[in-house]
C-alpha cells in the first residue's frame, strides 16, 4: 500500500458512524456494490470484461463437459472410432455390473473404518492439544505433515511398511512373536490397511479443524457445568460434542468425499485387488476408460458415482441434524 493511500484509508474508516443502517451506509458509499441495489441505467463495462474469462472458461471446461457427459452415457466410444449409439446399454450394464457394486461396497467398508478412526483420533489429539502445553506448534505441525505430503509419497512409503517379507509392520509383529500378516495381499485385510493409511494421511487436517472448533467454545460453559458438578465425560458429551457439531459434520463430509475419491492408493498398492477387494469407483472408471477404451461406460460410472456421493452427503447431513436436535 502506498503511504498516501493508507492515510486515506484510515481517514475513511474514521468516517464510519455507530448505529448506521445499511441503507444509510449505502447512501454514503460505505457499502460494497454487492449490497447496494443495482441501478438499471448504469452498468460497469469493466465488470463484463473482468468476468468474461471466467465465464468463457467455465462454459468450455465445466459446462460443455457436463452436457457432453449426458451424450456419452448413451454411446459406446473409444475416442478414435466413430461414436456408436447404445441407448440404455451402458446403464443396463452398470446395473448388473458386479464390479461397480463391489467398488461401492468396498468404499462403504472403507468409510466405516476410516470415519470412526478419523473422528476419534482427531478429536482426541485436538483435546490434548487444547490444553496448556509447551510445543503445541511443534505437535500440531508434526501431525499435519502427512497432509501436505503428496499422496503418492505416502502410498509408496506405506507399501513398504506393509510389505509381507520386509515391511516394518510385520517386522514389529515378529519382535513380539506374532505371525506375519498379508496387509495388502489378504483380500479380507487389504482395504482395512488402506483405510488405516488414509487415516494417518488425513487426520492432521481434522486435528486442526477440531482445535479451531474447540477454541471457539466459550470457557464459561465449562465453568458453569463444573459448578453444577458435571463429570468430565458429561462435559464432553453435553458441551463439547454439541458445540463441535458443525465441525463433525464437516469432517464427515470431507472424509466421505475423500473415500469416494480413492484412486492413487489402490492404483499403486494393489491395482484394486486382491480379488477386487480394494477396487474403488474412480479406479474402475479409469480402467474402463483407459484400459478398455470405453468412454461412454466410464462416463456412466462417473455419473453414478457423483449421484451416490450426493446422496450419501445428503443422508449424513440429515442424520447429523437430527442428532443435534
Amino acid at each position: 500500500m502506498q503511504p498516501s493511500e493508507a492515510k486515506r484509508f484510515s481517514m475513511w474508516n474514521r468516517g464510519e458512524r455507530k448505529g448506521e443502517s445499511r441503507r444509510e451506509k449505502a447512501e454514503r458509499g460505505l457499502l460494497p456494490a454487492a449490497f447496494r441495489p443495482l441501478p438499471s441505467q448504469s452498468a460497469d463495462r469493466a465488470g463484463y470484461l473482468m468476468v468474461l474469462p471466467y465465464v468463457i472458461h467455465t462454459v468450455i471446461f465445466i459446462g460443455y463437459p457436463l452436457a457432453f457427459a449426458f451424450v456419452l452415457i448413451f454411446h459406446r466410444w473409444n475416442i478414435y472410432s466413430p461414436m456408436k449409439w447404445v441407448g440404455l446399454g451402458n446403464i443396463k450394464l452398470l446395473l448388473i455390473d458386479p464390479l461397480i457394486w463391489r467398488a461401492l461396497g468396498n468404499t462403504i467398508f472403507f468409510l466405516l473404518i476410516h470415519i470412526p478412526l478419523q473422528l476419534i483420533i482427531a478429536l482426541g489429539l485436538a483435546q490434548l492439544l487444547n490444553q496448556k502445553i509447551r510445543g503445541r506448534t511443534f505437535f500440531r505441525a508434526s501431525y499435519f505433515l502427512p497432509v501436505v505430503i503428496s499422496g503418492i509419497v505416502v502410498t509408496i512409503l506405506w507399501q513398504q511398511l506393509y510389505a509381507y517379507e520386509t515391511g516394518l509392520v510385520n517386522l514389529a509383529l515378529r519382535e513380539i512373536n506374532l505371525p506375519r500378516v498379508g496387509w495388502l495381499t489378504d483380500p479380507r485385510i487389504a482395504m482395512v490397511s488402506i483405510a488405516v493409511m488414509a487415516t494417518w494421511k488425513n487426520v492432521g487436517l481434522y486435528v486442526v479443524l477440531f482445535l479451531v472448533g474447540l477454541q471457539a467454545i466459550p470457557s464459561h460453559l465449562y465453568e458453569a457445568a463444573e459448578l453444577d458438578g458435571a463429570s468430565s465425560w458429561q462435559k464432553f458429551r453435553l458441551i463439547t460434542v454439541p458445540m463441535l457439531n458443525p465441525t463433525i459434520m464437516l469432517v464427515l463430509v470431507l472424509s466421505t468425499i475423500n473415500g469416494f475419491s480413492l484412486f492413487i492408493e489402490p492404483y499403486v498398492m494393489t491395482g484394486g485387488g486382491p480379488v477386487s477387494s480394494t477396487l474403488s469407483g474412480i479406479l474402475y472408471l479409469y480402467k474402463q476408460a483407459f484400459f478398455f477404451g470405453k468412454m461412454g461406460y466410464a462416463a456412466t460410472i462417473g455419473f453414478f458415482w457423483a449421484l451416490i456421493i450426493f446422496m450419501v452427503v445428503l443422508i449424513q447431513r440429515r442424520v447429523v441434524e437430527t442428532e443435534a436436535v
Binding site: P187, G273, V275, S276, K287, F291, F292, G293
Partner: peptide, 23 residues
C-alpha cells in the same frame, strides 16, 4: 474384437478368485 482386453480382464478376476485364492 475391441473387447479383447476386457475379456482378458474378466478372466483375470476369475483366475484370481479361483486359482490364487481358492474362493
Amino acid at each position: 474384437v475391441s473387447e479383447l482386453k476386457e475379456i482378458f480382464d474378466i478372466i483375470t478376476q476369475e483366475f484370481e478368485a479361483s486359482v490364487i485364492f481358492n474362493l
